[in-house]
């Protein structure tokens, strides 16, 4: 150690370089050997070291790779213990001879050093047996579905239906923005609403109500968390219900044009009919008239026409009702008639 140059001693103190100690030792020893040789003779100044005397270049330490694990995997192993969680694709651990990608001329590249396979999401952690195991594990936290709770009873006792979605992931990140959406469905027949309240609710709610199934659907996604959206949906329902029960003072200014259904007695048609039937007396007071059966039929026909929509059937009903009202014959007689 005595002949070590100074820089060597300092270097050797650094732990990092202590690993390379054997190499250092050999190079140093060779130098010592050479120097010892040369002390006998005149030391020749070597400007350019000959290749033999150059210190052995540190060859890159070849890390001996073990053969891939897949070679020794038994065919009947438990895959869920091999791949328990979401992880990016690792070729040496997945015993499938997968290929993906293009080569200009030749075969698709294999799984080793294939970036494409790593980019793709993979669900190796959620194979069907793994999912079955999850279900088995969760079963002990579950109780069986009560038998009495069939569809009818569900609707009767639990009229509010809340729908949420959860998403599986192929990566360790579990944030999914779609998971915050909460859909709340309720049948309006389950709510106690009088005529005015129902009309007001429908106007407030607009397109969210489906008249064919009588279901009101509220979809909330304005909050970042599912819980917040759920609470907001419940709040919305409560607010809607109570608001529709109230009657504001300005609601009395509702005109005929605002009416959501056709009320014959409030419309011009009523006056027209009365005027026509009672001509030449003009009709001022429209409230005290009794409706004859023809007028009843006419009222029904025109209300249907307006409320249910116009088609050939409602029009023909209207026609018949009008004919009866005006005392015209049902249909053409076959015989000759002269005016």
């Amino acid at each position: 150690m005595a002949h070590f140059p100074k820089y060597m001693t300092t270097v050797l103190c650094i732990p990092r370089y202590q690993k390379q100690l054997p190499y250092v030792m050999t190079s140093v020893y060779s130098q010592i050997a050479r120097s010892e040789k040369q002390t006998e003779e005149f030391r020749v100044l070597e400007l350019v070291k000959k290749s033999a005397q150059r210190s052995a270049r540190r060859k890159a330490k070849k890390i001996e790779l073990l053969p891939p694990r897949t070679n020794v995997m038994p065919v009947d192993q438990d895959w869920s213990s091999v791949w328990p969680g979401p992880r990016s694709f690792h070729p040496a651990s997945v015993p499938l001879p997968l290929r993906q990608g293009y080569n200009k001329k030749g075969v698709s590249p294999g799984k080793f050093a294939n970036a494409e396979l790593m980019k793709i999401p993979n669900f190796l952690h959620l194979t069907p047996p793994a999912i079955k195991k999850h279900c088995e594990a969760l079963k002990k936290f579950c109780t069986p579905w009560p038998e009495e709770l069939n569809d009818e009873n569900c609707e009767k006792h639990f009229p509010v239906e809340v729908i949420t979605s959860d998403y599986c992931f192929s990566s360790p990140d579990i944030r999914e923005p779609m998971a915050r959406i909460v859909i709340l469905k309720v049948k309006l027949s389950a709510l106690t609403l009088d005529k005015h309240a129902k009309d007001k609710l429908l106007r407030l709610v607009g397109e969210r109500y489906d008249p064919s199934t009588d279901i009101l659907t509220l979809t909330t996604d304005r909050c970042p968390l599912k819980k917040q959206n759920y609470e907001y949906a419940l709040y919305l329902l409560t607010a809607l219900y109570h608001e529709s029960q109230k009657t504001e003072p300005w609601e009395s200014e509702k005109t005929v044009a605002d009416m959501e259904y056709y009320d014959w007695e409030q419309n011009v048609s009523y006056k027209n009919v009365l005027g026509t039937l009672n001509w030449p007396q003009s009709v001022k007071d429209t409230e005290n008239f009794k409706l004859t059966p023809e007028m009843e039929e006419y009222k029904k026909a025109i209300s249907d026409l307006m409320n249910k929509g116009e088609d050939l059937y409602t029009i023909s009903k209207y026609k018949e009702a009008t004919k009866k009202l005006l005392n015209l014959p049902e249909f053409l007689p076959l015989e000759y008639t002269t005016a």
Partner: peptide, 18 residues
């Protein structure tokens, strides 16, 4: 393979296969 590696790639030939 489709189940385990749901690739969103449009071209079917570009998807992983075995």
């Amino acid at each position: 393979i489709e189940y385990l590696f749901p690739s969103g790639l449009f071209e079917p030939k570009a998807r992983p296969f075995m």
